[in-house]
């Protein structure tokens, strides 16, 4: 077995370290196996997918599943590139708006005093509870009444009001020392300048985190239920229609989920340390 070297620390024993490592390795395998299976299956030729017992490796890797995926999607009237464009466009537009508008709102909630602040903040905190999507039906009714269904707006506008993201930025902004803002004011900087040149550079980890979280959420969400026009659908929804084709499409489905997985995971890998820095301030204090 591989030995891990942990520098001698307080209250740590070799035995305990080994035990923890073993447990993490065991659970880690369980966490990784499905993802690994998706990656492997994406490169399996059909005759390797239907093998008993199932294999977690591929002997004769092929890119056929990917070409077949593009063909299948292309047969769906709308070309693959259109779904890809929709997803990229909607994700980027929503993420940008979510970060900019969220940061603008987070600053006064963190550092300013204004009438109604406490009531509004309590209300926002309460709706953190609904971040799992339990309000989807009520908000669907509003979206329909506003005539937003079957437009890009229905995908972009609601993400502006992501309370979780705004909350994370506000918590991070609380850490900015008041003296810094005071100094800017004495130097004659207006509110907007202070925000742009002092606040935003100081909370870079926060908005980078929010960027990744927002992008991931929107990228994975799909457009089921609010978009019925084929040419406006998002990638996850289109790929879902393919995998609904059943067991015969195992390889293609694996290829599709692999493609969907890459952007969020890549984004997290790049920003991991920034994200942990932000989440350190995520706590609810009262």
């Amino acid at each position: 077995m591989k030995r891990i070297h942990v520098s001698k620390r307080l209250n740590r024993s070799r035995g305990g370290d080994t035990l923890i490592f073993l447990m993490l390795a065991l659970v880690g395998v369980f966490m990784a196996l499905p993802l690994w299976y998706a990656i492997v299956s994406a490169f399996k030729p059909p005759e390797e997918i239907f093998i008993y017992p199932p294999r977690f490796y591929v002997t004769d890797p092929t890119g056929k599943n990917f070409t077949q995926l593009f063909q299948l999607v292309t047969d769906l009237v709308v070309p693959f590139s259109r779904y890809l464009f929709n997803s990229v466009f909607v994700s980027i537009a929503s993420t940008a708006l979510c970060v900019i508008i969220g940061a603008l709102a987070a600053y006064p909630f963190a550092k300013k005093n204004f009438m109604g602040k406490n009531v509004l903040w309590k209300l926002i905190m309460l709706t953190l509870l609904f971040s799992g999507g339990v309000t989807s039906l009520p908000s669907y009714i509003i979206k329909a009444k506003l005539g937003l269904l079957d437009t890009y707006w229905v995908l972009i506008l609601p993400s502006i009001a992501s309370t979780t993201q705004m909350f994370l930025m506000r918590q991070f902004m609380m850490q900015i020392p008041d003296t810094l803002l005071e100094a800017a004011r004495i130097d004659g900087a207006g509110e907007i300048r202070t925000f742009m040149h002092i606040v935003m550079p100081n909370v870079k980890p926060a908005w980078m985190t929010v960027m990744v979280l927002a992008f991931t959420g929107i990228w994975n969400a799909g457009s089921t239920g609010v978009i019925f026009e084929e040419s406006l659908k998002l990638l996850p929804t289109a790929l879902g229609q393919i995998s609904a084709g059943g067991i015969a499409r195992t390889g293609v489905t694996a290829a599709a989920s692999l493609l969907l997985m890459i952007p969020p995971i890549l984004a997290f890998v790049i920003t991991q340390s920034k994200m942990l820095q932000t989440m350190a301030h995520s706590g609810i204090k009262d």
Partner: peptide
Amino acid sequence: TLLFYAPSISGGAVSI
């Protein structure tokens, strides 16, 4: 951290 967090952000993985 990546290994344990990855499933929650891999939207397409449920189909696997």
